[in-house]
C-alpha cells in the first residue's frame, strides 16, 4: 500500500509529542503530513514556526487551496477546520465539531473520504474525544490507524477513548510512532 497522507490529531500535550515525532522523520519523507493541534482561536503562527526548528521537513500553516506535497508538514490554522480535497487543502469556518475548530474529526473524515485506504490516521495525547469519530470512519474506509499508548501520553483521555471505540492497528509508545510511519511509508509499492 502506498500511503499518501498522514493525518495527525492531538490536543493537550501535543506540542511536545509533535516535537518528538517530527524530529525523527527524515528528509524526502514520501508522504504529506496534515496536523490538527487544538489551540486558542487567536493564536498566531507561533506553533508552526516553533516546530519548524525541530524538523527537516518544511512546515506550513495551511492557506486555503494550498497544494498537498509529499514530505511537507501542514498545520490546521487556528480557528479554521482543515479539509482535504483532491490534491489540495481547503479551509472552513463552519461551526466547531466536538467543541473544536479546527476539529480532528473533520480532518480525518475528509482525508479518508479522498484517500480511502491510502491514509494513515494518528491520534496522540489529548484531553477530549475529538478525533475518535474521525478515526472510526478512517478505519472503516480501509485506512491505517495508529494511537499513542496511553501510558506514554501526557493526557491519556483521547488515546484511551480511541482504543475503546476503534479496533486500532497500532498502539505504540510515542518514540515508536515515527519509526513505524517511516516503515509503513518506506515500504511503499513493495
Amino acid at each position: 500500500m502506498t500511503y499518501e497522507l498522514i493525518a495527525i490529531g492531538t490536543s493537550l500535550g501535543g506540542l511536545s509529542a509533535l516535537k518528538t515525532l517530527l524530529r525523527s522523520l527524515p528528509t524526502a519523507f514520501p508522504a504529506a503530513l496534515a496536523i490538527v493541534q487544538h489551540r486558542h482561536k487567536e493564536s498566531d503562527q507561533g506553533l508552526s514556526s516553533f516546530l519548524q526548528k525541530f524538523t527537516v521537513l518544511p512546515v506550513h500553516e495551511v492557506e486555503d487551496k494550498e497544494r498537498i506535497q509529499p514530505g511537507h508538514v501542514y498545520f490546521a490554522p487556528a480557528d479554521y477546520h482543515l479539509l482535504v480535497e483532491y490534491g489540495y487543502f481547503s479551509l472552513s469556518v463552519d461551526e466547531p465539531v466536538s467543541y473544536a475548530r479546527p476539529s480532528i474529526d473533520v480532518l480525518l473524515e475528509s482525508a479518508s473520504d479522498i484517500y480511502d485506504e491510502r491514509v494513515i490516521g494518528v491520534l496522540l495525547t489529548g484531553a477530549n474525544h475529538d478525533g475518535v469519530q474521525g478515526l472510526r470512519s478512517l478505519k472503516a474506509r480501509g485506512g491505517m490507524t495508529i494511537v499513542q499508548a496511553p501510558d506514554t501520553a501526557e493526557s491519556p483521555i483521547l488515546p484511551e477513548a480511541a482504543i475503546a471505540a476503534v479496533n486500532v492497528d497500532w498502539v505504540l509508545p510515542l518514540s515508536d510512532i515515527a519509526p513505524r510511519l517511516i516503515h509503513l511509508c518506506g515500504a511503499a509499492g513493495v
Binding site: E85, S90, S92, D94, E109, D113
Partner: peptide, 9 residues
Amino acid sequence: YAKASLKRR
C-alpha cells in the same frame, strides 16, 4: 463550491 465542506454540511 469546495466539495469537502459542502459534503459535510
